[in-house]
Structure formats: C-alpha cells, structure tokens
Design a protein around this nucleic acid. Structure first.
Length: 647
RNA sequence: GCGCCUGUAGCUCAGGGGAUAGAGCAACGGACUUCUAAUCCGUUGGCCGUAGGUUCGAUUCCUACCAGGCGCGCCA
C-alpha cells in the first residue's frame, strides 16, 4: 500500500485485505459488498468489526471462531495503517482496535488542510448534471408541498456539487397550462381586480379557488378556460399578455419565497418559449426521421402518432401500453412536450432557447431565463445526467418519458434520466382543522388541494416559525438589537424548515403538523445549529481564531476519552455519507448523519472539558472542536442550513 | 384488474442478513456559582402487520395474505 491512505478509508483497507486473505487462505472469492465491516454495537468489541468468518464457515468447513482467529492473526501481521490490534469474539466476529493516535492525528490534519473541501469527492468527473426542481404552476402562492420539492432538489444539487459535478439548476415554468388559464379567467371574465392590499400570490390563491368553484355551477365560465388556453397558445393578444404578466408576477413571488430558504436557480425555462421555439415540432421531425414513432392506421389509437412501449416489461401488462404523442386532431400531448424538453436538456434536440438575465439573486448570482428576445448561448442544457424532481404520482409518466427516449434511440440519455420521486405532503387532522377543512373520524390525513385552496402556504409557515425563533432569541439575547434578533431568528427558522422537509424518507408521506414543524428541540435543524454554535463558542473563548492550534498535543491522543473517540469516528464517516447521499438519492441520509454527529458533539461537550484542560490536552481538544466545527459546517452547507456562530 | 410504495414504542420516524432493535416527541425523575439548559443523564414504553419459506443466523431477503396510500387518458 504505497498510495496515500486516508483515515476515512480505513474500513475499505480492512475489506480489501480480508478479500485478499480469504482468497489466499480459503480459495473463496468474495465481493467487497459481501464483506460487511461496521461499527460494533458495544465499544467493548473494538472500533470496527466484521461477521465475515461466519459466512465462510460452511464453505471452508471450519468453525467460525477458528476462521476468525486465523484471519485476525493474518490481519495483525499485515500492519494495516490505523489499526492497532485484531481480536475475536464468540460467535465468530473479528474486531479491530484503532491506533487512535495516528488515526485521529491524520484525520484532524486532513480536515484542517482540506477545510470546506473535506468530504468532497470527484465521482462526477466534472460532468454536466442538470437538475430541475420547484416547477410550481405560476398561478398561486407556493405551499409546503412545493417546499418539500425545492428543499429536496436543492439538497441534491448541493450533493452533486460536492460530488464533483458541474451542476445546473433549472426551474421549469408552465405558464400556458390550465392552472394559469383559470386565474386569467378570473381576472378577465370575472373582472376580479387586484387592489394591492394583499400579496399577489395570495390574491391568486383565493381567485383560483373561486374560479374552480364557479366552474361547477357555470358551464359557460368553464368553457372560457379552453378559450383562454387557445388564446395563450396563439399568442400576440390581450389574453396571452395577461397570462404572461400574471405568470411572471407569481414566479417572482415564488423566487422570493425560495430565496428565503436559500434556494436559488441557474435558469428558468418557460413553456411558452418552448412552444414559440417549436421544440415539439422539431422533436417530432427528428423522431419521424429516426423511425422511433409510428402512425396508427387502426385500433384504439387510430389516427395518432405513438411510441410503441408494449414490448417493454414495465408496460407489458397494460391494456394500451403505447403512448400517444400526437393526437388524431394534430395536437401534441403533454408527454410529447416533455420528451422534447428532456431532449433539449441533453442537447440532442438540435434546438436551443435564446437567453437573457432575469435577475440577480440574493446569493449574488445571476438567474438566467429563456427569452425570445434574448441572445444565443451555449451554456445551458447539454447535460450528461438529468434529474427531474417531481412527486411520486408522476412516476408512470416519468417512466414513459425515460423509456420513450430509449425507444427513440437515445439509450444513453434514457440511462441518464433520473426521476427523483418523493411522496407528497399531506395535512394532519389538527392542521386540516386549523385551515378550516371539514374533518371526520374516518381519516387522519388530508390531502392538500390547490383547486380547493386547501394547503399551508410556504410563507405563512416561514413567518410563523420566524416569529417563534425570534422570540426565543430575544429571551436568550436581550443585549441584541431587534434587527440582530430577527436575523438570527430567521437563520434558525430556515434551519428548522429545511431540516423538517428533508429528514423523512422520500417514500413516506409527510403528515404535516404545525407542532412538529415548529419544534425547535430534539431531532431538528436548530439542534444541529446549536452544536455548531457551541463549538464556535469554545473556539472564540479560546481565542482560537487568532492563535494557531498546535498539533503537539496529539501525544494526549493515546488517552482519549470515549466521547472523543466517538466524535472522531463520526467525523470520519462524513465523506462516505456525501457519496451515499448522492448515489442513493437520499437527502435524509445526510440529515440522519448530521443529527448523530451533533449528538456525538453534545455528548463530548457535556463530558469533556476543553478550556479548563491541561495545556497539551487543551490543545488537542481545541483541534478536535475546530475539526468538528469544520465538518458540521460542511454538513450544514450541504443541507442548506445556516451555521450561526452563536445562538 | 394490473403496477408501485408503506406497515417498527402511545405519537413522529431511523435501521435494512449478524452481537442486547435505536432516536425524537409525550410521561415521570434528576443536572444550570461550570466551554450557552434550543443541552445532557436516567426511568417507563416493542409478537419490527400476519403466516409460511430461504439461511448457521431474518425486523431486514422470498412468497402469500391483511391493512393503508398512490398510479395506470387522444387531461395538464
């Protein structure tokens, strides 16, 4: 092992060595995945352990303990870096004890040297990673379901960046759909005037609901929807202008809402521009040339252009597995437009938007937008990997999208199309009740419904939690000015909301509950922030920002307390967490880790004095605290959670 | 009907072939002259949906069933 080795790869070293030894001694070839190495449940068993000997017992025709002993002896003889000794316990576990002086010393040095780069990897090979998220219909205020989308998408974008991808965040705006049309119906035909007394997106929230209720009793009004849609598609008329103006105003509201949570974008893509650029027409021509689609002369899809999906196992059970792209009346389906858009993202459409700068965002970065009056640019799309963040109800359509690409001959692009599907946010009985929804004993969760105006608005939630956190700050820091209190309160509120939105497994519905979402204690964002603030405090009091912490104290590492070792072991996991979070598309893996890292530090904080320790010990512990602060800072950054120096 | 997902403590959730199944909340009892108590320590609380199977070993994998959610348009 002549290459540079890192402490966070220690478990990998053991695995590799075991693989080699097992092959040599028993002539059994195991994959690395078959050699489980993990932290044992009890520190008495050492720092790392593996049950692999028990797996081998049958094939090697020896007792597990015997095999374990033989492997442990062999490992001992190899002198792996970072390991002190190997032992065996009863059923057949091999346990490893770390050489903490070297292990911790190298880790702390690495963290100090790598700083905010610590934990990053180069898996992405600088490939272009396009992620589309948020995508809210521009016709009403954002609600907490949209928040889940944006927070998950933003975290994935951050994970992709840490994983060495060139990341482009897109926000697609469907400004030509029925949602916008409904609001336009209200504004134009109902003569509803916006008087500026409330926020425009809140006004539209109510108007959208009103229009949908009136549709039920007034078929003539409902017919206006189709009329409006038609006029929008035609363009260059009063209605189309009104639709665009309305959409833009709502998009601005959405951008403001998301900016409050530090969610930003690289480019906006407007459906109206997709239409004007003739993306679909162009895609259709390409598909026809390529022969990927067929015109049906008979059958249920008679007169339509379809993509044949029936021979794919995913669709073989469906009554009508083929997907219509062009209807018999000559218009394109939603899926067709989606395919064209996806082709654009990959740069295989042969067409591109024109672009201009939309605005400068709160993070100082420019936001671009597709724009018919803009300039030609080569910066956008042209992806190697495309991730679409859309809730799980879109799974079928996302499958159709991917497999259609495959069928059209874009096999690599199909492979690199990832649907990040997540379950929706619903309301608890209490939350539903608070919003005035009629509740019954028969159910305990209530779906949000834009058309009915049922939902918790994102900004309402934020306002409420900021009020609460600011109150708490005021209690703790009466010396601060009101502005400072609000600023800190806002940071904590952002931490609480973002953590709440991504901490759950994406397969499960979040049953939104105010009490839980507003909680600032226990397994919450503020807990992470508090651990960071506590570490900052120690360093500030030690004057560590000005003096250089010396590594001389590392001799003291041989007498590390358990709490210190636990903290070291937690920090060492971080690079693997980033890798796994991205690979498994699992932001919640990062929140889980962040929480356990914070817990380790809290435990250290309570048990191990830093400032009052002897000089050598103090120096070592300050280094440890500084390392923790760095790692926690990095984790918080991935999660998009502000890291306050004090709380 | 077909397909996907979920079922773990009173509640909200982690874990995902391996040692005694973990957290938070709630309840109860402790710890602030101490590096900030948005914290920590302790107690109570589990047929890991049910039944089979695979395995040295299953809460984890497979099958069936039960319960719940979602999806399967020439809608967007």
């Amino acid at each position: 092992m002549t290459e540079k080795t890192y402490p966070w790869e220690a478990d990998l070293h053991v695995k590799n060595e075991l693989q080699l030894l097992i092959s040599e001694i028993y002539q059994i070839d195991l994959s690395l995945d078959e050699i489980a190495v993990s932290s044992p449940p009890n520190p008495e068993f050492g720092d790392l352990s593996t049950p692999v000997a028990m797996k081998l017992a049958k094939a090697a025709r020896k007792s597990p303990v015997e095999i374990a002993q033989q492997l442990a002896d062999s490992l001992q003889a190899v002198h792996l870096p970072y390991f002190e000794s190997f032992s065996v316990t009863k059923p057949g576990y091999i346990n490893a004890k770390m050489d903490y002086k070297r292990f911790a010393g190298d880790l702390l040095t690495s963290i100090r040297n790598m700083g905010d780069q610590f934990g990053n990897n180069a898996d992405g090979e600088k490939k272009k990673f396009v992620i589309e998220h948020t995508n809210i219909n521009p016709n009403k205020a954002a609600h907490i379901g949209h928040l889940r989308n944006s927070c998950l998408g933003d975290t994935m974008a951050r994970l992709a960046e840490k994983s060495g991808f060139d990341v482009e965040v897109q926000n697609y705006i469907d400004d030509t759909g029925t949602a916008v049309a409904d609001v336009v119906v209200g504004l134009h035909y109902l003569g509803e005037k916006y008087d500026g007394k409330q926020r425009f997106d809140y006004f539209c929230w109510d108007l959208y609901t009103k229009v949908n209720i009136l549709y039920q009793e007034d078929p003539e009004l409902e017919a206006k929807q189709a009329e409006v849609l038609h006029l929008i598609e035609e363009g260059n008329n009063e209605i189309a202008h009104l639709a665009k103006e309305t959409s833009k105003k709502i998009v601005d509201c959405h951008l403001n809402t998301m900016a409050r949570l530090d969610v930003f974008y690289k480019v906006l893509t407007w459906e109206s521009d997709i239409m004007k650029m003739g993306f679909w027409k162009h895609a259709f021509a390409r598909m026809k040339d390529q022969g990927g689609i067929v015109y049906e002369e008979s059958g249920p899809n008679k007169g339509c252009w379809v993509v044949k999906l029936g021979d794919l196992p995913e669709f073989s059970n469906l009554e009508n597995p083929d997907k219509i792209l062009l209807r018999s009346n000559g218009t394109a389906t939603y899926t067709a437009k989606d395919i064209a858009n996806q082709m654009w993202k990959f740069g295989i459409l042969g067409r591109d938007f024109l672009y201009s700068i939309y605005c400068t965002q709160k993070n100082g970065k420019e936001l671009w937008t597709s724009d018919m009056d803009g300039a030609k640019m080569d910066d956008f799309g042209r992806a190697d990997v495309v991730m679409n963040v859309i809730d799980i109800r879109q799974k079928y359509l996302q499958d159709v999208l991917r497999l259609s690409l495959f069928k059209l001959g874009f096999e690599d692009e199909a492979d690199n199309s990832i649907h990040f599907g997540y379950e929706v946010v619903a309301l608890s009985t209490e939350a539903a009740q608070e919003l005035g929804v009629e509740v019954s004993d028969e159910r305990d969760i209530y779906a949000m419904a834009g058309r009915k105006g049922i939902g918790v608005k994102a900004d309402d939630l934020l306002d409420r939690i900021i009020e609460k956190t600011t109150e708490e700050v005021a209690k703790r820091h009466p010396e601060m000015s009101a502005e400072e209190q609000t600023a800190l309160g806002t940071k904590i509120a952002v931490g609480a909301v973002r953590y709440y939105m991504i901490r759950y497994n994406t397969n499960s519905v979040i049953v939104f509950d105010f009490q839980e979402a507003l909680s600032l204690q226990g397994n919450t964002g503020p807990y992470l922030q508090y651990s960071y603030a506590r570490a900052s405090n120690i360093l500030r009091k030690a004057g560590a920002d000005n003096i250089e912490i010396k590594m001389d104290g590392l001799d003291a590492l041989s007498t590390m307390a358990d709490a210190e070792k636990e903290l070291i072991k937690k920090m060492v996991e971080y690079p693997g967490v980033i890798r796994r979070g991205f690979r498994d598309v699992a932001p919640s893996a990062v929140t889980d880790y962040a929480y356990s890292l914070a817990t380790s530090f809290m435990s250290f904080y309570e048990k191990v004095p830093v400032l009052s320790a002897d000089d050598d010990m103090k120096s070592m512990r300050l280094e440890l605290v500084a390392a923790f602060k760095m790692v926690m800072g990095n984790v918080l950054h991935v999660l998009g959670i502000p890291a306050p120096e004090r709380m």
